[in-house]
Design a protein around this nucleic acid. Structure first.
Lengths: 197, 197
DNA sequence: ACCTGAACACCGTTCAAGT
DNA sequence: ACCTGAACACCGTTCAAGT
């Protein structure tokens, strides 16, 4: 059987979701495709590049909500989309975070955020800072969530399941910090930051 | 030669700083100590628990600045201390972040932040949210920095070296978001959030 | 273009046995 | 209490050779 890049990535997603990142090995993936591990190196020079392609595919398969007019709503939705995308696959957050850190893939969310932040009227050198701060929060939060999920199912750790409101609250925190520096600060008056908002 | 837990951790720190996390293997560490790899399992049940002890030691060796009176200064300094601690060892941020995510160690920074945030007069259930948001930012930022550092020295990626001001700017963002929710909001008026502060 | 087969240089972990 | 020696079940990657 002969495969193309996209077939390999598709099967890698399947192995990832079914067995987790630790079991997504070149040998395991080869066996799953009925092929020698060495055959995979015809499609990807290294495992790291395979994982970058997997990360990009996770993001491509995630939701791409149409951006609302208000810049802060657009930023919040970009974060939601990213979160939903990585939570859809087991260990998805870690795969995306690692590829993103190595600069080998997962550039789309950063570009999305920079685009959405452009309308905020921020100081130019604050845009990348804000984008990366949001990225660290979303991916860090999702990684924690998925780590505790499998740790809980393995019975290793006894821990509270962080609710979805936890994400919203943390995002609101960072978003308000950005709003304070934005030219258009209408979001702060419009949305009280005290509980009950 | 016979070793105790602390000797093993100390040598692990040395291997980590000299060769990086990827080369910190049980076999390598055993060789470095002049001992069979299996001997390490007398001190640590798994490699993960060894790494948790390494993470705790990295944090213990880091700075522990005395906390100022203002709650927001105390929070900022706790973040600085954490950052300085993990940056002092190669791949320190990743080691601490991983152990922290697995809940096997590195609990001190979270407790520090919760302690410093207690004086902010936040809604009770916002304190853990704020603490984790800060943790995600500090460790995510430091991990990025260290990843790009070794990627740059390996010549793999060409990337801007993010300056130290980048960290301060991101921290200011999150901190302002917390200040907005604090009972004592004097920090917002006292410290203009626009550039030139 | 895509794959096989075999090899190289490794991993974490277990376990009986030694001192 | 701490370690050895040997094994088990794996890794990522390379490379000549096949079709």
């Amino acid at each position: 059987m002969r495969y193309r890049r996209e077939d390999v990535v598709d099967r890698a997603l399947g192995v990832l979701d079914a067995y987790g990142l630790a079991d997504l090995t070149m040998r395991r993936l080869g066996a799953e495709l009925g092929v020698q591990p060495s055959a995979l190196y015809h499609h990807f020079a290294t495992k790291q590049l395979l994982l970058a392609a997997v990360a990009d595919e996770i993001l491509a398969r995630g939701p791409h909500t149409s951006r609302p007019d208000r810049w802060d709503d657009a930023v919040a939705l970009a974060c939601r989309d990213l979160r939903d995308a990585v939570l859809a696959y087991r260990d998805g957050a870690e795969v995306v975070a690692t590829s993103s850190a190595f600069g080998l893939g997962a550039a789309a969310p950063y570009d999305d955020l920079v685009g959405a932040l452009a309308a905020a009227g921020l100081d130019a050198d604050l845009v990348p800072v804000a984008a990366r701060t949001l990225l660290h929060f979303v991916l860090g939060h999702a990684t924690d969530e998925q780590t505790h999920l499998q740790a809980g199912s393995a019975g290793a750790i006894e821990d509270d399941p962080r609710p979805d409101s936890d994400f919203a609250a943390g995002l609101g925190l960072v978003l308000d910090g950005i709003r304070l520096r934005a030219q258009d600060r209408s979001g702060i008056e419009k949305r009280p930051t005290r509980p009950g908002a």
